[in-house]
Design a binder for these strands. Structure first.
Lengths: 113, 113
DNA sequence: CAGCATCCTGGGCGATACTG
DNA sequence: CAGTATCGCCCAGGATGCTG
């Protein structure tokens, strides 16, 4: 089962449900744990830490533990991660351009049930 | 929980495990059912037809049934679908550019277990 | 060849409670 | 605040067999 296009590779990195969104938020500035939780809207702590670990292990983000009390940890995108975030950009724009269209389709879908 | 970036919208369309890859193949020419199955490498028929239905319902692809016997059905990308495929392009290229890197990381990962 | 009907399983995801 | 520890659901995805 040899690869077809680069998508299979990319999907290994951003496969998780929240990873693309996390990456999006991280590309602007480093974020703290709670900040990411708030920004992502609805992610559980367990899943958040899980996905952040994946991203860290994959060299997409860096974890900075300031060893303070109360705890303060920041997650920062790496240069490598930034290239991935850039590749995600068009998809993000596509979504924005089609947000209303998607809503309309959903409404139509609901009506036809 | 209002939307953050366009990614959430895009993910509703290409959320399925195989959809990005299917879209990739369809962007070049219409494909028959069996052809897609072969090209995608490893997808089951049930899942394939399922994802194709999703894509059809979302206006991403068109289904042409030639009503022949033996059956002949072709799936063709729509103009709308093409815009999505284009938005996927950079991600695809990113994957190609990082294929070897990903392999190396995987090897290193295996060694360290 | 294209596709439906079934049954089944894993693990991704979520909710909650607790700790340093 | 930033996690860890459990528990459990649920369904996307897979395997197999059958039909027009």
């Amino acid at each position: 089962m040899e690869p077809v296009c680069g998508l299979d590779v990319a999907l290994r990195y951003i496969g998780g449900k929240w990873k693309p969104v996390l990456l999006f938020h991280l590309q602007f500035s480093p974020r703290r744990f709670g900040e990411l939780k708030r920004l992502s809207g609805g992610i559980s702590e367990k899943v958040l830490i899980q996905q952040l670990k994946d991203l860290t292990a994959d060299g997409i983000v860096l974890r900075h533990d300031y060893r303070e009390v109360p705890p303060r940890v920041e997650y920062e995108i790496t240069d490598f991660g930034r290239t991935l975030a850039r590749a995600l950009q068009p998809l993000c724009e596509w979504g924005n351009a089609n947000r209303e269209y998607a809503r309309a389709a959903e409404r139509h879908d609901n009506e036809s049930r």
